[in-house]
Design a protein around this nucleic acid. Structure first.
Lengths: 227, 227
DNA sequence: TAGATTGTTAATCGATTAACAATC
DNA sequence: TAGATTGTTAATCGATTAACAATC
């Protein structure tokens, strides 16, 4: 059995970035160089080549990378070949906004379910999605690939437990809570206030020197290992 | 003049994490150990100590760190001593949700303005905030510390330009666009679809081995250097 | 062929972490 | 004193990047 080459964490995040650029690029140009990609995404060109080399050789020396094939290769490497179903838990301010967010479907994610536990919300339609009661999670969990937690902090852990029990393997958590999850559940946290705090520090520094950065969004990203 | 010790990028993100934990902790316990903090935030205890050492020595051997003073020291190091004003640009789904988000004020950020350019939205109140026209930015820009861009992707760059021209030094960008900004503007990007894509890859890997992570949401985090 | 650009090596840099002396 | 825990060193690990041979 061939061991699939595991792609470094930082590289995965940048591949998603390159893919975004390549999508914007359309098909007006037949090829792009690592220099082009680097300029557009603020990444060193050598790093771009190194990142792309994890997908196996695919460029042409003296020419660059053919745009459409490269897009396909990154798409395949990230596991984005099929449309992926997303469930949103929490139909409050943030959950509702996410349910109406057009960006997900543009990049291959389909909001397949929107959950809440508030009887006043269950049954209503938000952004074309009917709000289901969280108790009905098991019925559709099998078709869900990623769940987004957009609940108040105090129930986020219990929601994560229910999602894990239902077999959901990936969680994007917007609640300001560090989730304790089993090892086979992948969690990414996006804490809006923490983002502002990090920005605050760098802005104070920046007014002295001059920097700018991003993600890891979140990338920078703090660790979250299963318990 | 004393050079202020510059704190490494990854450490800054974790300090925000520790601060969150210390806030949750309240004052029931007089002190915490690096072991305690590490367990709560999923960070190696040695790393916690190293991170905290950037603030100068503050713990007591054999005892740990006094909770309240440590909270104050991190708060000061991150520049969070005063309440900071936030402006939200874009009063659509996401901008409106952010304007109503209670988490900001809980962590010392005040939403001081909400901007849009849609005449149908200007003048309306959303979450207690009156929507102003973006043309009125200059009038209040001086009091703004961070701006959040929650506009469609196609206008995000021009909004960033206007914010920079008005003197706003820090931007949290939710639009799926890599902003080109001057060197003295600090930008952090939170791209929701990219987060899902990164999660997708790790989930596919995770079903083989078993991992879980987070931020740097952002930490991870992709680079974004000023042009 | 000359020019361009990949793919990869190897040097460098920075971040993580085990280990332990210092010390409460 | 014995036990606990910090603060820091030094080893390790992984990520970045300059450099360049390979080659279109």
């Amino acid at each position: 059995m061939v061991t699939p080459p595991s792609i470094p964490r930082a590289t995965v995040a940048r591949l998603a970035l390159y893919l975004h650029y390549l999508s914007e690029l359309g098909d007006v140009r037949p090829s792009v160089s690592s220099e082009d990609i680097g300029a557009a995404t603020n990444v060193n060109a050598a790093k771009v080549r190194k990142d792309l080399s994890y997908l196996g050789p695919g460029g042409t020396r003296g020419v660059g990378y053919a745009v459409a094939p490269l897009r396909r290769r990154i798409t395949r490497a990230l596991g984005l070949t099929k449309d992926l179903s997303v469930a949103i838990v929490g139909a409050g301010n943030l959950g509702s906004a996410l349910a109406r967010y057009p960006g997900f479907s543009q990049r291959g994610f389909t909001v397949a379910a929107l959950f809440d536990i508030d009887p006043a919300k269950v049954g209503r339609r938000i952004g074309g999605h009917r709000v289901s009661h969280l108790d009905d999670l098991d019925a559709i969990a099998a078709s869900i690939f990623v769940a987004i937690i957009a609940t108040p902090a105090d129930v986020a852990q219990s929601v994560a437990d229910r999602l894990a029990a239902a077999g959901v393997g990936a969680i994007l958590n917007f609640a300001p809570t560090l989730l304790k999850t089993a090892r086979n559940v992948v969690v990414r946290n996006v804490d809006l206030s923490t983002e502002l705090q990090i920005l605050t520090y760098h802005a104070a520094q920046g007014s002295k020197s001059g920097v700018a950065e991003n993600l890891g969004s979140a990338e920078d990203k703090q660790p979250q290992v299963g318990s």
